[in-house]
Design a protein around this nucleic acid. Structure first.
Length: 993
RNA sequence: GCCCAGGUGGCGGAAUUGGUAGACGCGCUGGAUUCAAAAUCCAGUACUGCAAGGUGUGCGGGUUCGAUUCCCGCCCUGGGUACCA
């Protein structure tokens, strides 16, 4: 074999590992470049060809940056806590740590085969105690901080206590749930419990009773981004709302910075938009409505609106059914109806509420609010289209300007005031934010844009509300009722949470006998015997020692999956630091991630949480930047191409000797044939029909007389069945393998095509085990080599696009590498290169390639990069070029894409092994591309007719004169005089007739 | 519904500031080599037409000497989101 990729690739993998070729030095002399792949969860299924797509791209870029003289940090590790390992543990009784390690080993084996230039000395695993020690540490820091809105900065809780003790809380602008106002004297008079309860409402990590997404099937709480359409992201189980005491993260505090920070990031608009929508900033104003019959200032209904300009269009107010005032504001006549409505909506899950968007429902409370400007009575309603958890849980309904209010008003026959000048609202609300306001006292005649600030002014002057910004973003629930996650460094004393001193971290995950919740419904950690905190010896001790004096119960929840992944990119900079989560020097040198590659599915989860923690750590001065990922590329999904066989169904065979015909599979041609028959309403196939004849041929006699096709238009003549793609090649089924693949296929009758082959149908869909369309990288590496796989995955198309996987083209890429090999070898596979001066053609090919390749790499266009290598090798082969100086440069450029073959040939060229990784990327010299002549396309009215070779430096005027004199020009002019002539030197000539 | 991305041969895709649409690869057709096959090499391959030519980048308009590229309207596919006041 000439190009022995198996030998070459194993040789260099070994070399790289032994020589630690890709170890990144924490060296401040070279400029740094940080290339990171999104943290993988090591699933039991291993990698399929879709997974390494991004890794290959980032690896190419990392290697390219090394060639440019950068000190490259390109690490890999595992997000190794998580649900699947735990569920597997529940099923099999195996410790998740064991199965996780096995999965990681398999991942590593698969990754190693592809030749990535990861610095494995920096590997991190979130489930390692020396990693989660620092996750716990960060949690304690969050607990110890609050957010100052005035300075837009995180501060230590001690500064807040100082404020409280000297000024009370009324002058503090903090992100808080605290509604109580107190003076310094009052604060100083509070007992410890009361103080701590108040502080909880300020802490960034806080314990609170909150409505959570409870998933009974998984037995745990889920974050908002883990719930998709009312079911769990993992497993698709129903989710309901439940009030539970949970740890939460006050991410809301950072909402403004999380939105504005997006502007400086080099991410796709689509991800930025997703984050913006998720955070959901809306600017508006709060307005207080007095309630009729209540002088008590406590009974004021506060609403939030983004359209204060429509305040004179208010015709009723709607409260959420959960609004605290509902019971008191309901009159006795309306009591029964309102109570049953409140009860009915409390029983609805969030999903039901979402599903019934079209179903308008609500009840009149019987009481009235007072319009703050007109003094008119305004009906009070409840309706479940108003959400308790957003804004104030109450809205001022303006049916003329809001479609939901319009629908509600129309449904219940409520008044619809029109406050828009010359706008018809009889069919629908007018929701555009433009136009002129009418019938609105001091706002009349103003445009919407003028009226909004004018209304806010008036509202503020009247002291019935103020301009306000609301966010849709909710605080993130941080507790999970699971075993396989980071334990909280928290014990409980008198019902209050206390942090374990950071000196004693990590608090190591205890052993349990089983991974299910306890009989009394506690999380799995409730099963642990040794799970109490001894505040004297500062260690975890047996629960029997709990005395609530010096030994206390520990937290039973664990942290969610996103805890460990919110800061892992920092740990890679300093993975073995035992005294800090990352040293200041190292974080200052490496800074944030220059290039982050991963899927877009983390848009509102990981990518938001990691930004939040980064801003937090930045505020505290631990790190020197407040955005973690400067540039991000989201690779598209690789879809599987499934193969289908067609099982005959809904066909009735009329046979001469009662032969039972079942288990019949037809090839693609016959599938199309039968479908066409049915579609043209031919339901009976006679003896002279092609398919009947074919059947008799197979059965060996005149057995089938006719076939009846089911005439029901819905029924399918043949039902497609997935077959394993490993027994199909180029859509051709391996019939033997098919029959042996399943018991029921043993006696299958196959109706083949003319050529005696069985052709499968195909479908492009997500890669999954159940569709038998999973392609693992391992098989392809075995068959073609890692270099071929790397280049082929890149060759498929633009990185960001999702595309179907199809191995059809892989031969083309493999042939390219063999052709490259032949450039360096003669027919007998002897290594032969020439030291002669290269030809001008070869220099031109080389420099054209340098130019295109650099441009392609800079814009992450890896697919065109591969094409350019192919073009270069084709041209050099045609030129019979084997010049060392040309091939050397070509190899350097190729080494990021196909590192193994590049190393091998580099060594053969006589350079030091491994040194191609630190060679210099060739410099483009435009002189080699200078052409003496240019072939001008000559077009008439924009249509190209012919071309003519002219000197490249010919002036515009000369080109024009020359072209006009040509016979062909005269021919195409057909006797007419040109109106205008456009000459773009070096580009085109266009003659307008 | 709203937001975002995309729509180019038989297929994956290319065309970087508006300038020869279909690079490169697959597949297919024909040929060379071979006892034969694989591999390799050569030629062809958008559609239509015998040809000259005509038509072509989802559809309909527009700007321009010239549009896959810019503008307006629409259709389709994929992703996100969903009573957010």
């Amino acid at each position: 074999m000439e190009y022995n990729f198996r030998e070459i690739e194993s040789k260099w993998r070994k070399f790289w590992a032994e020589n630690q070729t890709f170890k990144a030095e924490d060296n401040a002399l070279k400029p740094k470049y940080y290339v990171l792949d999104m943290f993988p969860y090591p699933s039991g299924a291993g990698l399929h060809v879709g997974h390494p797509l991004g890794y290959i791209a980032s690896d190419i870029f990392a290697r390219y940056k090394r060639l440019q003289g950068f000190n490259v940090l390109h690490p890999m590790g595992y997000d190794s806590f998580g649900l699947p390992a735990e569920q597997y543990a529940i099923q099999t009784g195996q410790h998740p740590d064991k199965t996780t390690k096995e999965n990681i080993a398999r991942y590593r084996e698969q990754l190693d085969k592809i030749g990535f230039s990861f610095d494995w000395s920096r590997e991190v695993r979130t489930s390692n105690a020396d990693y989660y020690k620092w996750t716990q540490w960060i949690f304690t820091q969050l607990f110890d901080c609050w957010y100052n809105n005035k300075t837009q900065k995180t501060e230590r809780i001690s500064s807040l206590i100082h404020f409280f003790a000297t000024l009370g809380n009324s002058s503090i602008d903090a992100t808080t749930d605290c509604e109580l106002t107190f003076t310094a004297e009052e604060w100083n008079g509070f007992n410890h419990e009361k103080k701590e309860a108040i502080l909880q409402q300020y802490r960034l990590a806080y314990l609170a009773d909150s409505w959570v997404n409870w998933c009974p099937a998984l037995g745990t709480v889920l974050a908002n981004d883990e719930v998709i359409n009312g079911v769990s992201e993992r497993g698709g189980h129903p989710v309901e709302q439940k009030k539970m005491r949970q740890w939460s993260m006050r991410i809301k505090a950072y909402a403004e910075r999380l939105i504005s920070g997006l502007d400086g990031l080099d991410w796709t608009d689509s991800i930025k938009d997703q984050q913006r929508n998720w955070i959901g900033k809306s600017q508006g104003c709060s307005v207080n409505f007095q309630v009729e019959g209540f002088l008590d200032t406590e009974k004021v209904i506060e609403v939030f609106t983004t359209r204060p300009d429509t305040i004179f269009g208010v015709s009723f107010l709607v409260l959420a059914p959960e609004h605290p005032f509902v019971a008191t504001l309901t009159t006795s006549e309306r009591k029964d109806a309102v109570e049953s409505y409140v009860k009915a909506s409390s029983l609805k899950t969030e999903r039901d509420r979402q599903a019934n968007v079209k179903n308008i429902s609500g009840e009149f409370l019987g009481s009235y609010a007072i319009h703050p400007f007109t003094g008119e009575k305004v009906e009070l309603w409840i309706g479940d289209y108003v959400l308790a958890s957003y804004g104030t849980g109450a809205v001022m309904a303006v049916p003329c300007g809001d479609q939901r209010d319009w629908d509600f008003a129309t449904h219940f026959g409520l008044e619809i005031k029109n406050i828009f000048k010359n706008i018809d609202i009889s069919e629908a609300a007018y929701t555009e934010k433009e136009g002129v306001i009418a019938d609105s006292d001091f706002l009349s005649g103003l445009t919407v844009k003028e009226a909004i600030p004018a209304a806010i002014n008036a509202i503020e002057e009247k002291q019935i509300g103020k301009g306000k910004t609301n966010f849709r973003l909710r605080d993130a629930v941080f507790s999970r009722q699971r075993y396989w996650g980071e334990p909280f460094p928290v014990y409980y004393k008198d019902g209050l949470p206390h942090m374990i001193d950071t000196r004693y971290l990590p608090v190591v995950l205890p052993e349990v006998e089983n991974y299910l919740p306890t009989a009394d419904g506690q999380p799995p950690l409730g099963n642990a015997a040794v799970w109490a905190w001894d505040t004297v010896d500062n260690q975890v001790v047996d629960k029997v020692n709990i005395d609530h004096k010096t030994v206390f119960p520990l937290e039973l929840n664990t942290m969610p999956g996103w805890a460990g992944s919110s800061w892992y990119f920092l740990r890679y900079m300093d993975p073995h630091n035992a005294t800090e989560f990352v040293s200041k020097e190292k974080v200052a040198y490496w800074n944030n991630v220059d290039l982050y590659i991963g899927g877009s599915e983390h848009a509102t989860g990981h990518l938001l949480y990691a930004r939040f923690w980064t801003k937090f750590l930045y505020d505290l001065g631990y790190i020197s930047f407040d955005e973690p990922f400067q540039k991000m590329i989201n690779q598209g999904m690789i879809l599987g191409r499934s193969s289908l066989v067609y099982k005959a169904s809904n066909m009735t065979f009329e046979t001469s000797n009662q032969t039972e015909i079942s288990n019949l599979f037809v090839s693609k041609f016959w599938y199309n044939y039968l479908t066409t028959k049915k579609n043209s309403k031919i339901f009976k196939l006679d003896k002279d029909d092609l398919f009947v004849q074919k059947m008799n041929l197979i059965l060996g006699g005149e057995i089938v007389n006719s076939i009846e096709l089911d005439s029901d238009p819905i029924s399918m003549i043949c039902s497609p069945r997935h077959v394993d793609i490993s027994i199909v090649e180029n859509d051709r089924l391996d019939i033997e393998a098919f029959k042996n693949s399943r018991e029921e296929y043993k006696n299958a009758i196959l109706v083949l095509e003319e050529e005696g082959i069985f052709v499968c149908g195909s479908e492009v869909e997500k890669m999954s085990k159940s569709k038998f369309n999973v392609q693992t990288p391992d098989e392809l590496v075995d068959k073609f080599g890692a270099d071929t796989l790397r280049m082929y995955e890149m060759f498929l198309g633009p990185l960001e696009q999702s595309k179907p996987w199809d191995t059809k083209g892989i031969n083309g890429v493999h042939n390219f590498l063999r052709k490259l090999w032949r450039l360096f070898h003669d027919h007998e596979n002897n290594f032969v290169v020439s030291d002669d001066a290269p030809s001008n053609d070869s220099l031109k090919t080389l420099h054209k390639t340098i130019q295109k390749l650099s441009q392609d790499l800079e814009r992450f266009s890896f697919n065109t990069g591969v094409s350019n290598f192919m073009i270069a090798v084709n041209e050099l082969s045609d030129q019979k070029c084997n010049n060392r100086s040309i091939l050397r440069e070509l190899l350097i450029m190729l080494s990021p894409y196909a590192p193994h073959i590049a190393e091998e040939l580099w060594e053969k060229l006589g350079y030091e092994a491994g040194s191609i990784n630190v060679a210099s990327f060739p410099i483009f010299n435009p002189e080699y591309l200078v052409e003496s002549s240019f072939s001008y396309p000559i077009s008439f009215n924009g249509k190209v007719r012919f071309s003519v070779e002219l000197p490249a430096d010919m002036s515009r005027e000369d080109v024009e004169a020359h072209v006009l004199k040509l016979d062909k020009t005269t021919q195409y002019l057909e006797g007419k005089t040109p109106k205008k002539m456009i000459v773009v030197p070096g580009r085109i000539v266009n003659i307008v007739v």
